[in-house]
């Protein structure tokens, strides 16, 4: 009996323990990694909370009424004018010009690269677009002010085109967004199954007819996603408009006139000495919150489209 016991106690004959071994170190590491993952959620919450808090203070101000905010067209929070429209219209005008430039160009570039160019040409041409995408926006601002504006002035005359104007900022912004739209559209185009193209060719379609009547419609949702991301990027772009579009809110629909956008306004006002708790300070957060929400919604829509699109072809 005693002998049996010692054998049982002997390590060799102990029955295998199949329970998972406790490893506190592993759990600690996993917890830390999880916290790092949560960090991104924390950033989003912090953005919403901080922008929301200050924006709440701004809208809580008795002078700021809904009617004034959306019903008047002068924005000067310091002296009690709270009409948001001049900032919104100039943002819309610059972004529209940018999209007007970058969507057709970007789409054409994407079609050329994905349907026409040989693999060799593609690998030679794509880096050029990548360089264009990697140039800092402040450099584009320099380009807009010191190249595009003089160019516009020499075409339309110095009387019509002001030194700071929305048109040149919008045009250069279009160049900036072009690589984004072309690369996203190209991804969408090359995701279209080859069988569709072969089918079109078999029916006697030319390359152009295949690209535009078969491949393009099939990739339309992906191109829509690219367009939406482009709009979101244009609305949030700051440096080009801060340098070239003018400083001072101006309610105008003439693209050759100076008018400050939402982002440009934030950059100019926050660049100066700004006292906390002033109406100027809180108003900036209200604008930033609007920017954040608009771009967030656009990004979510675009992502939704891409996810749906991916499921269809894979």
């Amino acid at each position: 009996m005693k002998q049996e016991n010692t054998i049982m106690e002997n390590q060799l004959f102990r029955p295998l323990d199949l329970k998972k071994k406790m490893r506190p170190g592993e759990s600690v590491i996993q917890a830390l990694l999880f916290i790092a993952g949560l960090g991104s959620i924390f950033i989003t919450l912090a953005i919403v909370y901080e922008l929301g808090k200050e924006a709440w203070l701004f809208f809580g101000n008795p002078d700021v009424t809904f009617a004034k905010f959306f019903g008047t067209t002068t924005w000067q929070p310091g002296i009690g004018h709270f009409g948001i429209w001049p900032l919104v219209t100039s943002t819309l005008i610059t972004s529209s010009i940018a999209i007007f430039v970058s969507l057709p160009l970007g789409l054409a570039v994407a079609l050329f690269l994905s349907e026409y160019a040989s693999p060799k040409a593609r690998s030679a041409l794509k880096p050029i677009l990548e360089i264009l995408a990697g140039i800092p926006t402040v450099v584009y601002g320099y380009f807009a002010l010191l190249f595009m504006t003089p160019l516009l002035q020499s075409i339309f005359g110095k009387q019509t085109v002001e030194v700071y104007n929305m048109a040149s900022a919008g045009l250069v912004m279009g160049i900036m967004i072009l690589p984004l739209i072309s690369s996203m559209s190209e991804d969408a185009l090359s995701a279209v199954p080859r069988a569709l193209r072969e089918g079109a060719y078999a029916m006697g379609a030319t390359k152009f007819e295949t690209s535009v009547q078969v491949v393009l419609p099939a990739a339309l949702s992906g191109i829509g996603a690219a367009l939406i991301i482009g709009i979101s990027r244009a609305i949030g772009e700051t440096m080009i408009v801060a340098i070239a579009a003018g400083s001072g809110p101006n309610f105008t629909f003439n693209p050759f006139k100076a008018a400050e956008t939402m982002t440009g306004h934030i950059a100019r006002i926050s660049g100066g000495d700004l006292s906390y708790n002033s109406i100027d300070y809180t108003s900036l957060f209200a604008i930033a919150l609007m920017l954040f929400l608009v771009t967030l919604i656009l990004n979510l829509i675009s992502q939704g489209i891409i996810n749906k699109f991916r499921q269809r072809y894979e």
Binding site: S40, I43, T44, A46, I47, E50, L51, K53, E54, I229, S232, R233, I235, G236, E237, T238, T263, I266, A267, S270, L284, F285, A288, L291, F292, T295, L296, N299, L300, Q303
Partner: peptide
């Protein structure tokens, strides 16, 4: 994925506030 698309100036405002 969404944070990657937030305009950089909004990060600036976050930095200013926090």
């Amino acid at each position: 994925n969404n944070l990657a698309g937030v305009p950089s100036i909004v990060y600036g405002m976050l930095g200013l506030a926090i």
